[in-house]
Every structure is written in C-alpha cells, then in structure tokens.
Design a protein around this nucleic acid. Structure first.
Lengths: 112, 112
DNA sequence: CAGTATCCATGCCGATACTG
DNA sequence: CAGTATCGGCATGGATACTG
C-alpha cells in the first residue's frame, strides 16, 4: 500500500540541493558569465568587479568539484587556464537567465 | 555618440540583486512553501526540518523587509501569525519551481 | 598569467534558555 | 503559539604578500 500522506510533504527540499551547489557568493555570477562562452581566469576576474583572485579561485574549484564547470589548463608559458560550463552547468542557463531578468525587474520595483 | 564598448559588459550583475535577496540559507525553501499558500509560523517550522525558530524568524523578517513576504498578526491568545508571499514574492514562483526541478534532476546526475 | 599562503574580521548560524 | 536573549563556534570571505 502507498504511504498515507506522502504527497502532503513532497521533497520540496530539493531547492536545498540547488542552493548547496549555487550558494556561494559569486557562483551564480560566475555561471552567468560562463553561459556566454569559455573564459580565461583573468577575463572572469576583470568581468566581475569586487571579487578577489582568492575567492574567484575557490568558487571556481567548488563549481568544478560539483560538476558545473570545466577547467582546462594549457601547458604554456605564461600559464593559460580556460573555464567553461559543463553540460550540467549549461542546464542552468534558463534559470540564470530568469534570475537575471527577475533581479532587474525587482530593482525597478523597489526603487521607491 | 553611444558608449564604445558598453555591450561587452552588460549589467549581468543583476543576478547579484537576486542573490542579495534570496541568499539566506532558508529563504528559497521558505518561499517554496509559501508559494503553496499562507502558512503559520509553527507550520513552517514543522515543514522545514532542521531550521531553528531563531533562524526561521530572522529569514522571514528579512524576506518581509525585502518585500517578498507579508506577515499578518492576529490579536488573539494564543498568538497567531500568518505568512504569505507578497505579489513580488509570488513573481518568483516560476523560478523556485525550476530550481526545485533542477535540484531534483541534479541529484540524479551526481548519484554516481 | 594564474594562482597560493597567511592572517584576520565579520557574521552566519546553531544550541539553549527564557517570555508575553 | 510565536517568538526573543544570550553565548559562542566555525565557515565565509577580504587584504596583502608572494610564486611557478
């Protein structure tokens, strides 16, 4: 027999799965930039004002560990590292686009 | 004359506007519950395992201050307080639904 | 260029006890 | 029932200096 009240408490906690992976301060911003194409470390650094190299590195490594971002190192001097969205990261494009649009709209609403 | 390279650095930082407001550990989870209808404090507390009363209060107050949630106090004993999404909060339903679905899908992908 | 290493401040958040 | 008060740990994240 099926569980009695299973449907009254669905696994809405799956948003938690999302926030665990996207929760970092710069992660959605990074993803948003990478949705537009592969970027080098320095490009990202310049494109995101306010982030430090330390934080950019950390967040990128976490995104990589979570399978959202791919990191490609070229054996050159000077060093060259390219970041891009993985297939999983690319699947977030609709959501980041909507968040972007919503953020824009929200700002309009709250400017009294 | 138009700015030279304006379009190369569009205001993609608008996702930051969204994360500032949605960034709390429980905010999206709370919103997700309130999208399904008005809830009392205790109902939310029981519906979200792991959250403490302190954190639930704080996150609800921040959501209220940011205009996403409305709080209605009934002058009764015992006290009764109802929370619901504001029109602005309701505008996030599509996004929270998608995040929920994505979180579910993501979990499937990463279970090795 | 693409990072690390080190130090350090903030504050997020939990646990516990208490209240109108 | 719906909170608040207080304490405190620990992760998050910034500044600065340094490196292969």
């Amino acid at each position: 027999m099926p569980p009695r009240i299973a449907t009254t408490a669905p696994d809405e906690c799956m948003v938690e799965a999302a926030t665990e992976v996207l929760g970092g301060k710069w992660k959605l911003v990074i993803l948003r930039h990478l949705q537009n194409g592969t970027r080098r470390f320095g490009e990202l650094h310049r494109a995101i004002p306010g982030v430090t190299a330390r934080m950019l590195t950390r967040q990128l490594r976490e995104l990589e560990a979570d399978g959202l971002v791919e990191r490609k190192v070229y054996a050159e001097v000077p060093p060259k590292v390219e970041y891009s969205v993985s297939p999983i990261g690319a699947s977030l494009k609709e959501i980041t686009d909507r968040l972007e649009a919503w953020g824009h709209w929200y700002r309009e609403q709250v400017r009294d």
